[in-house]
Amino acid sequence: MMHRKVVLRVVSKFLIPPILLFALYVQFHGDFGPGGGFQAGVIFGSGFILYAILFGVDTVKKVLPPWATRLMLVAGVLTYGLTGVAGLILGGNYLDYNVLAHDPVHGQHYGILIVELGVGTTVAAAMITIFNVFAGQPGGD
């Protein structure tokens, strides 16, 4: 059944790398234009979801096994939380980025970058996990 949808397969192969690249652009350019961790995570996740729709969930699971998405899910939240703890250790308040570097403004930069990375990882992993669970269900009409 799948081999008949040649157009979809070819187009998706063209589209998926730019989608993932665009997600990374949104992630790291979010400081300057619109964008940030939440959007980037969703776009990154949707790249994988497109792949899963066309080639089946099992194929995606070969690329990104379930343990990896779950690890990403936890790692994102932990990145966020530990950034706060790092601020605490370095002598500031929780989630105070000023102390992360010698210059408060640089500290804010690093802090926001790391935190957004954590958010993006969690959101992407959450989207992929949710979709995989839905699509991996047996039965239906």
Binding site: G36, F38, G41, V42, V123, A126, I130, V133, F134, Q137
Partner: peptide, 20 residues
């Protein structure tokens, strides 16, 4: 609202999971 949208889709997913 930015965060609420993403949280909204996550909770929608939870609701749909309950429906299934």
């Amino acid at each position: 609202i930015l965060t609420a949208i993403v949280v909204g889709v996550a909770t929608t997913a939870l609701g749909l999971a309950l429906v299934v």
